[in-house]
Amino acid sequence: MPDFVTPEQIARRTSAAVDAAVGAGRALGLTVTDAEVLHDLFSVVVHLAPSPVVARIPTVLPHSADLGSQAARQQAELDVTRWLADQGAPVIQPSPLVPREPVQRDGLSMTFWQFVEEDRDKEPDYVANAEIVADLHAALRGYPGRLSFLSAAEPRVIGESLALLEDRPDLIAPSDLDRARREWQVLEPLVSSRAAFETAFPWTDVQPIHGDCPPANIFSGKDGKLYADFELVTSGPVEWDLATLGPDLESAYDRGARRNGMRPLKEDVMSFVNAVGMLRVIAALALAPQLPALPEYLNPAIIRWRTMPFAGGVGD
């Protein structure tokens, strides 16, 4: 595994992403004179001003990611968000000023979105957000496209990342890594196979879901809240979208579910998705060389994981 990138390398990575987005936007006919970075963490998000278009360019990626796999995932996101917008759902939608498909330039794959002005004075209300995730699930139930089962769990990435972390005791204690790998042996079959999941959790319906913690990915626009960041959109149990968020947000979701005539969250499925979610946290440590601040954010969750039942009690 490589050494940690320096601040100078991160700045060059950001600059390269901006240059690629500006070049791609201009090639598509957009006027771009004042590009502004809105966000820079796992992706660089750039407003291609004065055009009302935002480019999102993933820059911190698993070692196995390639342009083909990125483009497939990005196309699914574009298709789902465009469909939701057509149904009248409050969602940040693909820009109508360019083709609704991923664009590749300078070794990067990017998507283009409508620019929405953010209400920066409004603090996120994650409990309220969790309740309206049920509204999103109700809307997504009718999505006609095909989505793979629990691809948001990224089972290949988890396995590869746990292997990479064998040589990084500076990032994770060997005892923690040993537990994570043993848990993954239990959980991986249920993540990788819808049939195995349905055998383990009968009577649990599977449907299109957001895939990436939607209560934290609701954008506060000047004109109201919008669902955003469907990069990991997938098919799975609705519990996945509440993984690791705790009982307060689960209760809020259940209120929204009842309002929509939907079932409440199931305790055994929540234990399963919480366990997988924690392994995704541990696997993310393998990205630390690309994003040195990451361990500081992840370590509190890992401390909590040590107190949780092994593999969420699955198989007990």
Score class of each variant (00 low, 15 high):
residue 7 P to S: 10
residue 8 E to Q: 15
residue 8 E to I: 11
residue 10 I to L: 15
residue 13 R to D: 09
residue 13 R to T: 11
residue 14 T to W: 11
residue 18 V to W: 08
residue 23 G to Q: 02
residue 26 R to V: 00
residue 32 V to R: 02
residue 37 V to T: 08
residue 50 P to G: 03
residue 51 S to A: 13
residue 53 V to I: 12
residue 54 V to Y: 03
residue 67 L to H: 08
residue 70 Q to C: 15
residue 77 E to G: 14
residue 78 L to I: 09
residue 80 V to I: 06
residue 81 T to K: 15
residue 85 A to G: 14
residue 87 Q to F: 11
residue 90 P to W: 04
residue 94 P to E: 00
residue 95 S to G: 11
residue 102 P to M: 03
residue 102 P to A: 10
residue 103 V to F: 03
residue 108 L to E: 00
residue 117 E to D: 12
residue 120 R to Y: 10
residue 135 D to R: 08
residue 139 A to W: 14
residue 140 L to W: 01
residue 154 E to P: 03
residue 155 P to S: 10
residue 159 G to Q: 01
residue 159 G to H: 07
residue 161 S to W: 01
residue 161 S to K: 01
residue 165 L to F: 09
residue 165 L to G: 05
residue 165 L to Q: 04
residue 176 D to T: 11
residue 177 L to M: 02
residue 180 A to Q: 10
residue 183 E to D: 11
residue 186 V to Y: 02
residue 186 V to G: 05
residue 188 E to Q: 13
residue 190 L to T: 01
residue 191 V to A: 05
residue 195 A to R: 15
residue 198 E to R: 15
residue 199 T to N: 10
residue 203 W to I: 04
residue 206 V to K: 15
residue 211 G to R: 03
residue 211 G to N: 01
residue 213 C to Q: 06
residue 215 P to C: 00
residue 215 P to T: 01
residue 215 P to R: 04
residue 216 A to E: 12
residue 222 K to L: 06
residue 228 A to S: 12
residue 229 D to T: 02
residue 231 E to T: 10
residue 233 V to S: 04
residue 233 V to Q: 00
residue 253 Y to S: 03
residue 254 D to R: 10
residue 275 A to F: 02
residue 281 V to A: 04
residue 285 L to V: 06
residue 287 L to M: 05
residue 290 Q to F: 14
residue 291 L to W: 06
residue 293 A to Q: 15
residue 294 L to A: 06
residue 296 E to G: 12
residue 296 E to I: 11
residue 298 L to F: 09
residue 301 A to T: 09
residue 307 T to W: 07
residue 307 T to E: 14
residue 311 A to K: 05
residue 313 G to I: 00
residue 313 G to S: 04
residue 314 V to L: 12
residue 314 V to Y: 12
residue 315 G to M: 10
